[in-house]
Nucleic acid binder design. Sequence first.
DNA 1: TCGAAAACAAACACGGGCGAATGTATAATC
DNA 2: GATTATACATTCGCCCGTGTTTGTTTTCGA
Lengths: 203, 203
Amino acid sequence: MVRRTKEEALKTRSRIMDAAVDVFFDRGVANATLNDIATRADVTRGAIYWHFKNKLDVFDALHDQLQLSFADTILSDLRNDHPHPLLQLERLCSDLLIDLENNQHKFKVLSILFFKCDYNGEMGHFLDLQNARKKQNIQLFSEYFARAKKHKHLPADVDTMIVSMALMSYVTGIVVDYLRDTNSIVMREHAPKFMRFFFKNLG
Amino acid sequence: MVRRTKEEALKTRSRIMDAAVDVFFDRGVANATLNDIATRADVTRGAIYWHFKNKLDVFDALHDQLQLSFADTILSDLRNDHPHPLLQLERLCSDLLIDLENNQHKFKVLSILFFKCDYNGEMGHFLDLQNARKKQNIQLFSEYFARAKKHKHLPADVDTMIVSMALMSYVTGIVVDYLRDTNSIVMREHAPKFMRFFFKNLG
DNA sequence: TCGAAAACAAACACGGGCGAATGTATAATC
DNA sequence: GATTATACATTCGCCCGTGTTTGTTTTCGA
């Protein structure tokens, strides 16, 4: 009806994204209608088509946002030169898991990525993005282990790449299992145990 | 065109299911058309509606088939009274992972379950089924650890439930990471290493 | 051997979502 | 203060998939 100021337009855009998270979470990406999102965001489909190219473009925005958020967390943690890198990484993973319990937004977006969308055709591209990020994160993990070797906390003959991949899979699995059944795991209680179990035979 | 004999009808049914696997894998469950499946199976939509209620019913059949297959494998392995349960379980998990590399059908179906369908609305039911199976499998895992305790291979104070859950998440994570990027992991080579790493600090 | 039901094929009606085109009122710009 | 670009709302036409129904042929059972 009325043209908004630039600032308000940005708010509209993020309102659409937030609405998309809810709708994707409730109805699934493929089943979600642009009209569903528009209604939830209190706008019309026209508004969505102004800010985004189409539904995939909305999804892309959400995807990007989360991916960057994770990489940032790890990178900023790596800047901190902890005296015991293994404990540092153990703590990081544990915190990352526990955060899922508190951060409703991350919980929903991750649920969408794992259980509310099918990566076929045009969506397949996002699997490639996730893989690229995964490799990157594995690389970051191995940096912790490399530091641990320097501190003599870890035998020099340990294959840091395998351990990093194992840790990545381990965390991924815990996340998947948690998202699939929230009731089966209480992160605040279990995450430290799970992580301790993994790092026990390293440190 | 012509009515088939009962035996041929069963073949038609399984042809439809096989075609569904291919189509779901290629286009995703939500995006897959019953006509796509019919074409791939060399029948018409009428045939599908004869054998199944609708697309979800086809999916349900595939889902059931795989779920049962996994539980069977573990159960039959448990009947074998191995002198070293930890090694037995390590070997079982390793074999289960390596099988993904050889068994194209399981690979595709698991890919569908993890990356080619969104569990919204009516599909949400399948998450419940998966959770039920997961709990059951965790229970079966813990049986191995209980046996290991009897053999004094495992300290009595180890929390078998936590370890079982951890193992389940670990395997799940490896499967997910493998399905998402087949090239990043060579199961025949990596699976034993991953599993050895997990069981190293137990046995 | 002769109905009856099985195992499909073919045709039908129906809705619903998408993309684009158009309309419109205001904010930005100069 | 007039013009232009912005930020949406509204409308339109189109296609595509679904569920159902009806039709056809053949096998099975009594």
